[in-house]
Design a protein around this nucleic acid. Structure first.
Lengths: 199, 199
DNA sequence: GTCTATAGGCAGATAGAC
DNA sequence: GTCTATCTGCCTATAGAC
């Protein structure tokens, strides 16, 4: 596919997704319009509808691409990083990178707007969280098993805590435009899972 | 004032705020319109503009009232609950109550939409978080001083962690419509601040 | 694939009668 | 205070030429 369709990854559809992704992450699904994308790309609104007939389909494509990329990052962390604690740090780093771009996690943003989203987008948002929770629970269980990590309750609950804290830290830190607020919450939570505690 | 203007607390302006508050917490500031409120109250859009000339002013009034009520709850907790751990539990309970109503924290929702909000609403959102963080840092410092709580770093960082986790737990749990997900994250984080640890 | 043109609806907001 | 009527603008979406 990469051969038969040269530059496919920078084709119009991808550039539309790039701009739409930035808009949703910074302004929300209800906070941008086809006109915003068209203006940014020098196209007309009608042209956008050729690639994505409805805004709901654009939204769906957005989540699918974002999730796929995010899951690739998770696999990359799993295969290149050794040690549960390092993996969790790398995981938090993914969120820090998003926040540095003055963006919210795409699915965190969509979670806030969930009740107003087209129904076809609902499952995709849930799936993103499910995948993250599964990955986190796996890392946490591994760390607990080899004594690297220490926490009460099932790994799934700790996973829920990590995901919640990172999403919430982005949410709260963004209005302040202050990455250190995110880091404080992220570091504190990861430290609380560490087997070695100073307290 | 309560005497000279009987039923002021259930007057039209207050009923507008009630409906608007529910709409913002469940759908977001960009996810509702004057028509939604008018329909719910059996009024016309024009009548709403008599009480709140612009949507920005309505939004501002919304945050002010919500913040005032929330701060009252914080004072009530501070004066009726003894023990830092109990205060933190009561604090988390405030969020749980909001989530039970299938709502997001008003200011958590507005934080997501922050970049699209009228500028006059910005400071009010920040102030809400500041007040919460100050209150939390005070409780945490108290608990740390008397040995009831134990955590690394300054109380302000722990406060940032608690606020982030609770906001994020609401954000993530709401699409699942599952209060237990919120509770898992809330309980886990509060337990990590407890002086007595099983690990 | 991109354009012009336009439809049809809803947004926030205002004027002025009652 | 609430209404009817209306304005202006933007929204998503479509038809059809190029």
């Amino acid at each position: 596919m990469a051969v038969t369709q040269t530059q496919a990854s920078t084709g119009t559809a991808q550039r539309i997704l790039d701009v739409a992704e930035e808009l949703v992450q910074s302004r929300g699904y209800n906070g941008f319009s086809y006109a915003d994308i068209a203006g940014e790309l020098g196209l007309t609104k009608a042209s956008l509808h050729y690639h994505f007939p409805s805004k709901a389909e654009l939204g769906e494509a957005l989540i699918e691409r974002y999730s796929a990329r995010f899951l690739e990052s998770l696999e990359a962390i799993a295969s290149t990083t050794s040690g549960a604690d390092s993996k969790l740090e790398a995981y938090a780093g993914l969120y820090a990178d998003v926040l540095r771009g003055e963006r919210m996690c795409l699915c965190g943003m969509l979670a806030a707007e969930y009740q107003t989203l087209p129904e076809r987008m609902h499952d995709s948002v849930i799936r993103f969280f499910d995948h993250n929770l599964t990955w986190l629970a796996g890392v946490l269980a591994q760390g607990q098993a080899n004594g690297e990590l220490s926490f009460d309750g099932p790994p799934a609950d700790a996973a829920q805590t990590v995901l919640s804290t990172l999403q919430g830290a982005m949410l709260v830190a963004r209005p302040y435009r202050d990455l250190t607020r995110f880091q404080a919450a992220a570091d504190h939570t990861l430290a609380s899972l560490n087997g070695t505690r100073s307290s």
